[in-house]
Design a protein around this nucleic acid. Structure first.
Lengths: 230, 230
DNA sequence: ATGCTATAATTTGTATGACAACTTTGGTGC
DNA sequence: GCACCAAAGTTGTCATACAAATTATAGCAT
């Protein structure tokens, strides 16, 4: 059994994040205790605490003001990772919202991919669809490959915003609901997922924009339906 | 003339980021020099360098592996802030992609907002449209209020993923192209922006989903057209 | 009392040194 | 060739000291 190493700075960062999002002990705009207090409170050295703070600052969760203190960012200025606080929301709702969001975007992605993908990208997408089919056949987990498939399509749109956004969002949502619910990978739906993936891949390979869009829409609608069924 | 204080850790973080994105001296997967070398190379203490690294790690740009080294994340694993490196891409293209992305999403947002918005949210949206009209009337800048309008609509969809994503994305893209191009706020288009905003607001206020969607689509198409015209 | 100024207190920023913990590499013995 | 162990390389953590910026305070002049 391998246990992954987690640096104290990361642990402390998580702890502070939880104090903000879970306990709501500190709210946006609030000032954290100074570094000396906080470090002794959490039982670590000041250096480690500072590195933890830098991590959260990098994520936009904390704002540091020299000479005055460290504060919890307000959502506007601290853009980035506010999904990290999503556990305070109903997680099932988050997953549903995620699927509804994808229902808007991904059919368009499929369409654009069918129009703009390079030869290599079409082959890669086809390969990923096949790989996923093989995994399902053997009853193995296929979360990663599923994500890779959708990411490949996003990349094939040749739109940089889509290319950057989709994987980042997927990861963010996934990590937000990491421990609990699984994102629609029930045994029942896996067979259909394979079918739709293959359909989407075929349409993209042939440059059939209409078909790709429609297949993808069905695919996600299917996932959404499974979600409601639970 | 007040010059804002910038901590060395932040400066070093920027410097490293530039080495990755601008110079492309280190590419995804590459290993950075060890902390001792890098700190003496950049002329700072190891502690400051480490804090800079934590900042970039928090942004997902760097991945730290204890005992082996610090590496440049690949875009997949290093979710977050890869827009920060957008200056290496043609910025005009980024803006265009951003509009194309919005063209997909925002009409749906308007539709959902028309269906789901609370009474307060409808009033807020109407108010923002009026405020923007007033600003344009006086010839003042209205970037902030424009963003607020679209954000308010995103919030009114009652979909948490949309609510979280749109403002974050807007900020990310904006900061990526900060210094150079302005995001379509030419004098010519401002008048039309007012008109469309008002139309969208009216439709949302009345719960006219179809109308809201269509008005928003025209609004963004208009922006896209102005972009190509330049 | 009021308001300004200098000073002190608070707080984050930076540097240095030392050692611990983990990973990778290379050699050694079999 | 293989397994094991030692050593080198690298990040992790702690402790301490002082620098620099901001905020609060006290005192003085008006």
């Amino acid at each position: 059994m391998e246990k992954p190493f987690i640096p104290i700075s990361q642990l402390i960062a998580n702890q502070i994040r939880d104090m903000i999002f879970l306990e709501q002990r500190y709210q946006p705009g609030d000032k954290l205790p100074n570094e000396y207090e906080l470090s002794s409170l959490l039982g670590v050295s000041r250096s480690s605490l500072r590195e933890a703070i830098k991590l959260l600052a990098g994520q936009g969760i904390l704002t540091i003001r020299r000479g005055s203190g460290t504060f919890v960012s307000s959502p506007k200025e601290g853009q980035r990772d506010w999904f990290a606080g999503a556990y305070l929301e109903d997680q099932k709702k988050l997953v549903k919202h995620w699927f509804e969001f994808r229902l808007i975007l991904e059919p368009h992605n499929a369409r654009l991919a069918a129009q703009n993908a390079t030869k290599e990208e079409r082959e890669e997408i086809t390969r990923l669809a096949r790989e996923l089919a093989a995994l399902v056949e053997e009853g193995k987990p296929f979360t990663k490959e599923d994500q890779a498939f959708h990411t490949a399509i996003a990349t094939a749109t040749q739109n940089s915003v889509i290319t950057m956004t989709m994987p980042a969002l997927e990861d963010a949502v996934r990590s937000a609901i990491a421990t609990s619910t699984s994102i629609g990978k029930s045994q029942v739906s896996s067979q259909n997922a394979v079918k739709f993936h293959q359909a989407v891949a075929d349409c993209i390979a042939l440059g059939d924009a209409e078909g790709a869009e429609m297949a993808m829409r069905f695919h996600i609608l299917h996932g959404l339906r499974d979600l409601d069924a639970e």
